[in-house]
Structures are given as C-alpha cells and as structure tokens.
C-alpha cells in the first residue's frame, strides 16, 4: 500500500527550503553551467579542433579528447550532486518500498 502522496514527507535532499538558497539554487546553478560547458565542449565548433590525423600517446587525439571531457563532466556531476547538494535526511525512509498489504 503506497501512501497517499499528500502524506509523503518532503524527500528533497536535505529538505532544504525551496527558495533561491536551497538545492535548486546552488547545485542548480552549478548544474546549468556544467551543462552549458559540456554542450560547448562536445558539440561543433569546439570538437572540430580535435579532428585530424594527430595522435597523442599513440591514441587518436579525438578519442582521448572525447573520453577526457566525458570523464571530467561525470566527475563534476559527482562533485555537484554529492558535495553541493546537501545529503538527504536518512530518517526519511520511503514508505513506497513497503510490501503490499
């Protein structure tokens, strides 16, 4: 039996007040800037710069570049979501997981 949605406690990370200073504010601003950064680095015209016959450490530069950016973006998502977004309150165990009545 899932609870009446109205009864579900606020499970936003940290239950922070939803104002500009809350999660959507700080982590949100970081998220949007990271999104723009990633889109910039992974779309033309920037990516055209790495296309070509060049190799680095014996690997195609374009291959290295794409994975390096990708790993950097994931690392930054990790930093933003785990460091800047406050951790969720562990006491709020979701009731949805309860078995059927």
């Amino acid at each position: 039996m899932a609870p009446d949605p109205a009864q579900i406690p606020d499970k936003s990370p940290g239950g922070a007040p939803p104002d500009a200073t809350g999660r959507a504010g700080r982590a949100g601003a970081f998220s949007i800037s990271l999104f723009l950064f990633a889109a910039l680095m992974l779309l033309p015209p920037i990516v055209t710069l790495v296309e070509g016959e060049a190799n680095l450490f014996g690997l195609p530069v374009i291959y290295l570049y794409l994975f390096a950016i990708w790993i950097a973006v994931v690392a930054l998502i990790y930093l933003i979501s785990e460091r800047f977004a406050p951790a969720p309150d562990p006491t709020l165990v979701p009731e949805d997981a309860a078995p059927d009545a």
Binding site: S31, I32, F35, L66, W70
Partner: peptide, 13 residues
C-alpha cells in the same frame, strides 16, 4: 551516450 550524460547533468531540473 554523451546526450544522456548531458541530460543527467540537469538532474535537479
């Protein structure tokens, strides 16, 4: 596979 990564960057939204 890069596209989904971009979307997940915006997970809070």
């Amino acid at each position: 596979y890069l596209g989904p990564t971009l979307v997940l960057v915006l997970w809070p939204y």
